[in-house]
Amino acid sequence: MAENDESITIEKCPLCGTTHRYSLKVQTGIVMYNILSMRDVPPPKVRTFVRFFACPVKGQDYRATFRLLESPSAPIESVDVAGEARD
């Protein structure tokens, strides 16, 4: 299992109307492929997630639906919101 850092930008917060950027912790698994079956590797697919985000201005929560690209060799096991992204 591996943990990757991703980021997501909410262009217009439904509560305060400003832009927020958050960090995501994406846990991925490991898939072992038989080298002989490499031609059968499926293409990456899009997965949709719904998470609650906290508006740093209003101090309230809102929900956002977003999509992540899932690689066939690293299936996404969990996505956690790690708070505001510190650039």
């Binding site: 991703e6 930008t9 262009e11 949709t48």
Partner: peptide
């Protein structure tokens, strides 16, 4: 709302306040 993709492929589809059911 059409949101651009982040540099790592994250695309926001929908954003809305919490409904009473969500709360």
């Amino acid at each position: 709302m059409d949101n651009p993709k982040d540099d790592k492929g994250t695309q926001v589809v929908d954003v809305q306040p919490l409904t009473p059911h969500d709360r």
